[in-house]
Design a protein around this nucleic acid. Structure first.
Lengths: 203, 203, 203, 203
DNA sequence: TATGAATGAGGCTTCATTCAT
DNA sequence: GATGAATGAAGCCTCATTCAT
């Protein structure tokens, strides 16, 4: 008898993702983005996912819980993607630029996920716990701004404000960049958008 | 074929024209921002507005139409407020700054209306006609950006992009500024936020 | 001062038919035939008639009463039309044939009224009083059948049955005859239909 | 987002397949004939059928669809009953008589179904598709009439007309025959009614 | 694990009717 | 007589959720 160290599962996404569970999540994401949380009955999700009504509620005791799960998953994925190639950067400035590019690229390549998160963020009903928890992934960005200020690269102002302005500008930039299919054009938009942001930030 | 016998209403309701219509709109705005479109039954709106269910549907054939009406009204009000004291400004730069201040002030003073518009903007179901119609109020802003470019005050880039970045930054700024109650602090945030934006825009 | 004998008004249709009252009745007939009793809101009737909601209820305290009035009016008109040129006929046979023709002609020329009466006859909800009262107009037909039997022209059978068979055959004939626009064709159908009926009745 | 907590149902409902569906149909038929389509709320149907509101709509997405289903079912049943013992008859005449008897007997024994069909036939709102589909069951009757004409037993006239007159006469006969409870009397009425029809048809 | 029939509270909307003007 | 805003009971239908199999 072989003993195995039970693998430490990251708190939330533990339930050994069965195939059905994944199908449900994928389908739900697509439908929620197209039709909104309230325009999407759970019955439709299960039908499109090819499972029974009961199956959905086996994995997610509540519609709300399904939404939350999706939110947490996407948020953490986004945070992760945002850090790609982060360690190799040296200055705060280059880190921030790297992060901005990552964010924009991710947003363009995952429009459904982005739309989902926006919808979630602006829906007055959803569980606020998930909301706050989601934000926590981005605290490192705050730190980064503070670091930039100490380095003298970023203006010495309330880091919260800078963080917030930066985040909202990025979301505008993604929206704009998603509007073109042409890669050259897109490249240009991204470059200039990031310039806008950096000019706003720099000392 | 008989339905009901309405109770005699107390004669204290000497209402002029569409007082009721206004009460409904006001109540709806408050409830929608608190509880969301879908968390707010029409029955609750009419109850809180102090009118009968039928009255709501007398003025707005559909819940959706009520929402749309609210949207159009707020959007046009916002556009109007944004232009306050606009004509006295000479340069594109001062105009844009004036406009920014107006936007932030309006946002801070009308949090419910702002929240409503955000919710509306990010709800995948709502009538797109109202959406587009709403945007039309802000075309003058695009023109303003173009004017600034011609003047040489704003950098020569895709005005759409600049407009979009500016708008999203402003919304972030409002959110941040709404966080403080202290007027001095708020003043400072606004000033620095507008600096951020202007630095992003300027040539 | 001239005294005038107040004209004796026939019990029901007394209310000095105002123009509005007539417009309402006419409109209601058209709408009921097209859309059914329940598919026709009183609000639609008054709108199409060009009067206010309240006006309809001024003349007809109830929707049901409006329907009944229409029914009584049409039924009595139909009965009257059925007797056209009746007195000049001598034998029961010729009387019956005359009546049959009248019925068919009226039915073809007043399809809306016919449809209304059928709908009324087969609606389980409508006031039965109007139902029975309507039938009273046709008692003379029963008498006619009995007369024919005494004359030896009609088979000696339960007159109720004969009356009933005759009536239902006539309604079938009208339906069939209404199907053609061509007058010659129609003439032929009517002739043969009446033959069918007379062959069924005769001794 | 939570709705309700269903009570534990007593385990006495070991239902096979769509027992509920049948209960709904049966109950609906009874109620519709008593109170009319519009006098019968779906809520009353489900209550009387002993099922939940949702159950009705699980089986019939619409009230109209429930009515249609009922119509189609009854119509096809009636058509089937009308052909009982049909094959053993040799001549068109005997076939028609057989069919007439079958029709009358079915009508007398199924007054609710008959009333339902009449109500359906004269309701201006109902789906015309079901209407036409229902009629298709009776095309063989048309053929029968044509056969009789070729045999020389039926007079040589538009078969559509004859079919139509026959059908309407039959419906009158059923109504009349249903009026008596006395079997001898009833027998007599049927016989004489069929004579009426045959005399109308024969060459 | 999976299924899907069953539940029933609750949502949106309709419409006959009233009544103050 | 005429108007039409106001009423509110009641109708149809949706949908998150349960549970026996």
């Amino acid at each position: 008898m072989t003993r195995q160290k039970p693998v430490k599962r990251p708190a939330d996404e533990g339930k050994m993702s069965s195939e059905n569970r994944e199908k449900i999540l994928t389908t739900a994401l697509a439908l929620f983005t197209e039709r909104g949380f309230f325009g999407t009955p759970t019955s439709l999700i299960s039908k499109e996912a090819g499972v029974a009504t009961g199956t959905l509620f086996f994995y997610f005791p509540t519609k709300e819980e399904l939404i939350d799960t999706l939110y947490r998953r996407i948020k953490s994925e986004a945070a992760q993607e945002m850090c790609r190639g982060f360690d190799t950067e040296k200055t705060a400035q280059s880190k921030i630029r790297c992060l901005g590019i990552n964010a924009v690229v991710w947003g363009i390549q995952n429009p459904a996920k982005l739309k989902f998160m926006e919808q979630f963020a602006y829906s007055p009903f959803v569980s606020t716990t998930a909301h706050e928890e989601g934000m926590s992934h981005f605290h490192f960005l705050r730190n980064l701004v503070e670091e930039g200020i100490r380095e003298g690269a970023i203006r010495d102002t309330d880091p919260s404000l800078l963080f917030c302005m930066m985040a909202s500008s990025l979301s505008g930039l993604i929206a704009q960049a998603s509007g073109t299919a042409d890669p050259a054009e897109r490249e240009k938009i991204i470059k200039e958008g990031l310039d806008f942001i950096w000019n706003g930030l720099k000392a």
